[in-house]
Design a protein around this nucleic acid. Structure first.
Lengths: 221, 221
DNA sequence: ATAGAACTTGACCGTTTGGTCAGGTTTTGT
DNA sequence: ACAAAACCTGACCAAACGGTCAAGTTCTAT
């Protein structure tokens, strides 16, 4: 009668079958939500991609909205955990480069996560506004303060630290969200090659470090 | 019987009422498609926002798919026409700065156009792949050649010209597509202020010009 | 003035949607 | 071995969907 098993994404308490199926469903859901947005995605499409009857996904997640939330929560955890700890005593150049590389690998390895997040933002982020206004805002302010500290110590050139972070995000995320566009312009067949991601990573690192006066500008020919 | 009036977006041949209604519907459609994607958007929602009965929008556009195409075509024209002509004899610094400013104004003034385009790309661009592979690719290659020419002449530092263009797009579009995110992090109430766009524009211009060796890096304190 | 073209729209239709449920099978702890 | 818990799923439902249509109203050229 009462199906109050209270399913959460990280329910490790019991059930091998449960874990396997939840994983399978969420992977399929991430893909379908990425490709169609929340409203455009159908539970039938998710079920088909997961290779399960539709009723089965409702058994585990109840409603489409709850499944979406679970996918979204998974992504937010991934997002925040990807941000390596930055300390005031670290080297500015290597810290920035490492961070860009980490974000870029996320774009390459988890493009659907990035797309679901992008979809949510485009829609006005109705479900994650509190996350943006709290965790994310705090994270940015904390990291920006460290950059400002470095600037004050003369360890890098003065830049608008918050906006630097914003644009690093913009540049790294574009390679996941708009992959088809860059693939088409570069003459690739739908998918980018690994070397495209490498070249983009190097470019962004170079651009950011030059902006911060941490890498010399090559002389004009 | 046969309603073969062949409606195109730029049908100026006749009909004051026709033009007015088509404009109203397309504006509403752009908003609804931006907020929900093609699959997630409903003709009822578009009709409601346009202030017309649903049957009326079918009278003018036939199907949801045709309406979407019309909106998309409108955006592609806007996109390409926004790219000012660049000549080999222009000044690199002012040309790049002007271009960034133009793209940024599009983000500020037509965010829904940007969002519809972004949605289409995230989905894999099923309807505009030929545009990406032809017009857009050609445009990028043409402009990149001019940048390369400038580099060869020693008028700017060597950079990967195509990737520079890609990342300018990424940085300018993020202010339209992900406005809520930046508004939340900056502590604004949902919408960014005009000064936020101005500050972002200055930052991107500065970043690009520094990268190209066209603007001195401020000394460390 | 008037006839034909253009525009309007409530009511309707077949399909797809998210979600439910009863009755079954499998797994698990003892 | 066996009962309880967990899992499975075809069949079903009301609501929402894209689209149609016939009967009307308004506009426009002569």
């Amino acid at each position: 009668m009462d199906q109050k098993t209270e399913i959460t994404a990280d329910d490790t308490s019991q059930g091998r079958i449960r874990q396997e199926n939840i994983e399978r469903i969420m992977k399929a859901a991430e893909h379908v939500f990425a490709a169609n947005g929340f409203r455009g995605a159908t539970t039938a499409a998710i079920a088909k991609e997961a290779g399960l009857p539709k009723a089965n996904i409702h058994y585990y997640f109840g409603t489409k909205a709850k499944l979406y939330r679970a996918v979204l929560d998974d992504i937010l955890v991934l997002w925040l955990s990807s941000f390596r700890e930055i300390g005031e005593n670290d080297d500015p150049a290597t810290t920035l480069a490492d961070y860009i590389r980490a974000k870029m690998q996320l774009s390459q390895n988890r493009p659907n996560a990035s797309k679901v997040f992008a979809n949510e933002l485009i829609r006005g982020a109705p479900r994650i506004n509190s996350y943006l206004e709290s965790e994310l805002k705090d994270w940015v302010e904390e990291k920006a303060a460290i950059l400002d500290h470095w600037i004050e110590e003369g360890r890098m050139a003065p830049v608008d630290s918050k906006r630097l972070i914003f644009h690093i995000w913009a540049m790294t995320q574009t390679w996941a969200d708009f992959e088809v566009q860059w693939a088409a312009v570069l003459g690739r067949k739908k998918k980018l090659k690994a070397e495209d991601f490498d070249a983009a990573t190097d470019f962004i690192v170079s651009m950011v470090l030059r902006t911060c006066g941490l890498q010399p500008i090559p002389p004009r020919s």
